[in-house]
Amino acid sequence: MIAAWAPRLAHRLAVLWRSRRDGRASVPPAQAAIVEPPPLDEMDADGPPLLKVWLFGGLAPVAACRSFTVPLDAPTSLRSLMAMMVERFGPAFRELVMQDNGQIYGCCRLFLDGFPVEVDDIIDPARGPRNLELIVLTSSEGG
């Protein structure tokens, strides 16, 4: 039986389970604000640019520091940076950010110069000094 929507039914083909956009325009890209990173207080004019890493929430106490700096000698992956932090700050830090299989918890949020980044992203030293913020958000909830 054809219901009231029948006039809107275009055609009966084998279902197309691939996208078909029919020439519609795509969504415009994000227009995020562009801002300069805040100045770093430990810059060395002659050295490589520095990455200042800020730790918040439960990370700062286990690392026993709020921030530290890392020289950006070359393009650096956030994954390698996380591994360095786990090595440096020990098992309590690792427990907060990293699963036993080495994957970073989804609740561990990373922001580079204020913008969210993924652990596989690369920090490019050519863009000068940078700020990286880490915080672990609480996870389990229902409702």
């Binding site: 929430g57 439960g58 915080i135 672990v136 958000l137 609480t138 996870s139 909830e141 229902g142 409702g143």
Partner: peptide, 17 residues
Amino acid sequence: AGFGTPNFSVAGGGLHC
């Protein structure tokens, strides 16, 4: 998260619904 506790609950909210 700012405090640093993972122990966050909605009481009966998730358990019941």
